[in-house]
Design a protein around this nucleic acid. Structure first.
Lengths: 346, 346
DNA sequence: CTGTTAGCGCGTTCAT
DNA sequence: ATGAACGCGCTAACAG
């Protein structure tokens, strides 16, 4: 592997001139620059990332800290990781993966290794020990999700209010008024998992905006749990004509559970799956109507904000992105209403 | 951040003694070691990864090269990435993500940056330009999947022969003999995508081992495509009683397509979904019987082999891992056969 | 067993 | 506009 010294010799200049030409850190005569570039081509030279990082104290490496082996976001998490890596690359950064749960010591150790210039933290909880560690370390970081009181911290999160306005509004426009929510597990609330808590708040607010009462049932993120939850809704509110479900695995179970209870989807009860992807939703029959997570956009926004902060080119970045409605076949007019078909209508 | 020099001063030893204590690269007196460890604790010292990498030429960073935005393995790809990162960490390595398609120049550039000591290549094709680039670079690498002629190259791949023996054998034991395969798209064959090619070969061999004729239909990896493919099977081989489907999205469509054609699953036709995950399969009704991809094991095996090669502690590592049968509700006794219930039987 | 010294490849003064 | 020299934090000879 050629070094910068090799390039310098071949171009008959000093090492520092090569460095300055590459970094545009001081003017270089056009002619010399040309000779340098030629030498670089001929040698196939690339700057050594390690040496550059050591000398400049800018490693151009950022970390993605995410909870290993959790599948809350299973559907979109891969998109998320991929787009984050891609965005980092677009900015000339490498992305390393730190698959860690709330292990403060492990995080501190990785931070202290001095490899990365910043961290993107996925799946941030309302109270998140990882955030405390990072804040204490002084290392730049941005959150995907956000704590209860983000203050001036950077984040990119889902706009739950807008998302539930869309969900409830869509159902309302089709004549539904008995709209239930099947949210993530109660344990998520206790664990201060943001989406579950915020979805519930947003749902209640959206419902009250429409002067409607709500019914909330909690469910684990599995098909059988969703099935049971559907039964609970039917018992608790037999006149329910629409259900908003937080998890797509649960949503699949909800459809089955409704069928068990003698309700057909969407003729009797409409179902909307929150934070899903259309690919997953297509596996159910009927195909679920979804509000898709903006996984790709979140990943990119998080990395972009982090890079901006590292390079001190930007103030606090706090972004909220709504889920987008993706029509399937699980939503229809409420019984007795006389409008149009919601899913197929433009 | 404290440096090794700081530790040395505080422990009243020289820099090199600290280094040697940390790396066990030469004997250090117990007493000295104790003083050093104490100093390290008190200062909260961690070795700087960059400096260590530069001096030793061992960055302890490996890359995961994977096709961005593809969803062939969507179901298990996240597991794969996560477990690879976790395994790397267990060996004291960092894992960086290189989300690149077949962009030889980009790969070469990243390699030349000298950041990583090795690469795990995901989704390797039968003829794969990325493998050529890496082989030419001299950098250690291991493949997930394998080229047509891997030679002495390291790889971890699915054992397609064993997997299709399991699938066909399972169906045979339930009395099925008209067993069709719905494989990935024809384009995958042309593109030399390993799994599609190898699954088809393994299917034909397994069928002929049982002295059976096979029927193969190709399908894109989507629900509607699977639905169409099911129709094609019914037309081409009306007496089919079982279908093995390569992709889980397609598999969901196959169930619908069979229903369209007046065949019920599993009463009339059994369906097995290949290279799936039980979580996805549970979203269908009936719940699909699957042969689950060993995503986690593949990721770990790939990283483990790579680390072994980097540290020169191992010869060629070529691993084949079978998919495991996971019973759902989409497989039953063949009509007219009088054995046992396959899915619920132990 | 321990200390001294020379790099690793590059950014960054300070000169000129 | 360009060179020379120093140092980033650490490993790895080479001494003793």
């Amino acid at each position: 592997m050629a070094t910068m010294q090799d390039v310098a010799r071949r171009a008959n200049v000093s090492l520092s001139t090569v460095s300055n030409a590459l970094n545009n850190t001081r003017p270089v005569a056009a002619a010399t620059r040309a000779r340098i570039e030629r030498a670089i081509d001929e040698l196939g030279y690339r700057r050594n990332v390690l040496a550059r990082g050591l000398a400049s104290r800018n490693s151009r490496i950022v970390a993605l800290l995410f909870p290993a082996m959790e599948n809350r976001l299973a559907g979109t998490a891969l998109t998320f990781v991929t787009s984050a890596a891609d965005e980092a690359r677009a900015h000339g950064y490498h992305l390393v993966l730190w698959p860690l749960a709330d292990d403060a010591d492990a995080i501190q150790e990785l931070v202290d290794q001095g490899l990365v210039e910043g961290v993107v933290v996925m799946e941030v909880g309302l109270r998140d020990p990882r955030v405390d560690v990072l804040a204490g370390s002084g290392l730049p970081f941005t959150m995907i999700g956000r704590t209860e009181h983000p203050g001036e911290l950077d984040y990119a999160d889902i706009d739950f209010d807008a998302t539930l306005d869309t969900a409830v509004g869509h159902l309302r426009s089709l004549g539904h008024s008995r709209i239930a929510l099947i949210n993530g597990p109660e344990s998520s609330v206790e664990l201060a998992y943001g989406p579950v808590v915020r979805i519930e708040q947003a749902y209640r607010r959206a419902m009250s905006d429409h002067r409607l009462d709500g019914v909330v049932v909690h469910s684990e993120r599995t098909v059988p749990a969703g099935r049971i939850a559907a039964g609970q809704v039917v018992v608790a509110a037999p006149d329910t004509t629409a259900i908003i479900v937080n998890n797509e695995h649960a949503a699949a179970g909800v459809v089955t559970g409704l069928t068990d209870a003698g309700r057909s989807v969407p003729a009797d009860v409409s179902v909307i799956s929150l934070l899903s992807s259309p690919e997953m939703a297509a596996m159910c029959s009927p195909r679920l109507t979804t509000l898709d997570s903006p996984g790709d956009a979140l990943g990119r926004a998080g990395v972009r904000a982090l890079v901006a902060r590292i390079e001190k080119k930007a103030p606090t970045s706090q972004v909220l992105l709504p889920c987008t409605l993706h029509a399937g076949d699980s939503v229809a007019l409420a019984r007795g209403a006389g409008v149009t078909d919601g899913d197929t209508a433009r």
